[in-house]
Design a protein around this nucleic acid. Structure first.
Ligand SMILES: [Mn+2]
Ligand SMILES: [Mn+2]
Ligand SMILES: [Zn+2]
Ligand SMILES: [Zn+2]
Lengths: 141, 141
DNA sequence: TGAACAGATTAGATTATATCTAATATGAAA
DNA sequence: TTTCATATTAGATATAATCTAATCTGTTCA
């Protein structure tokens, strides 16, 4: 991803391109996993310029609000974030809390009657179980 | 729900039936919504016996672990809980964070290939948007 | 029945996560 | 360049949840 593409991406959402905000977005785009705010804070501060903790949280909030970043709440753990690239679902490990991507496939929407006057924005499918590292090793014989 | 049914339900999961644990389970079963730990704490303590905050959290953890209660993580807010009665999906309001039930319907599982060696326990469908109270009123004419 | 004891409860301290404040700095439009 | 809405910052504060270690109690079984 070119630097200019990220800047245009931010501008297109009405967000000023600051070094701190750029760093968060660039990190999330090149990152395969689902880092927490603290992990992002540490990663972007390993190179200059330095961002404060408040700025990391502010920018994550703004990027999520702009629809460029997705926030994944995990029970009992810090929230995790990913840049919204290709659509995909999430698998959350019962044991270690890791969030992993699962190939996207279309999800049937609920019947209009069961939604009532609610305004539906998105359907999100979350899988739960044991991730590759936490699953019991296959029994050898 | 009879008191004995709840007690048998706890015993069936290997959990001792204490007044505090019983109170949490009974409250969640008669409750239509999705209260937070603090709301449960306040509700069960409006009648005796008094439960401490730690006990509310301990019991919620145990009940979730036993599969009797479901925990719903909401971004930026306290976790919410419901007793697992009839299967259903959840709608989470973007604006107020309220969690509401949506009639259950079967969800297609992902292709085995995209799961790899992960062990799938459940598929959870979460709808997001604006709840009835937060949705804009229909334009009158 | 009544020990015995694994499991449960408790108050309060502590940790983890996230937001707020208000002073200062800066991106980008004109 | 100047202007100013927007962004950043350090540190305080708020909120959510867990930990600790002393005490208590439900259930089992002799
Ligand atoms: Mn993802
Ligand atoms: Mn529910
Ligand atoms: Zn795992
Ligand atoms: Zn709402």
């Amino acid at each position: 991803m070119q630097p200019d593409a990220i800047k245009r991406c931010l501008a297109g959402s009405g967000l000023r391109s600051t070094p701190q905000r750029y760093a968060v977005m660039a990190f999330l785009m090149k990152q395969a996993g689902h880092p927490t705010a603290v992990e992002i804070f540490e990663a972007v501060n390993r190179v200059d310029p330095r961002s404060s903790r408040a700025t990391i949280y502010n920018n994550l909030r703004d990027l999520v609000h702009a629809g460029l970043v997705r926030e994944v709440a995990v029970e009992g753990r810090a929230a995790r974030f990913d840049a919204k690239g290709m659509r995909h679902h999430h698998f959350i490990c019962d044991r270690c809390g890791n969030v992993e991507d699962v190939d996207w496939y279309d999800v049937p929407r609920p019947a209009a009657a069961s939604l009532g006057r609610r305004v539906l924005r998105e359907c999100e499918l979350i899988f739960r179980g044991l991730c590759t590292r936490c699953a019991p090793r296959r029994v050898s014989r």
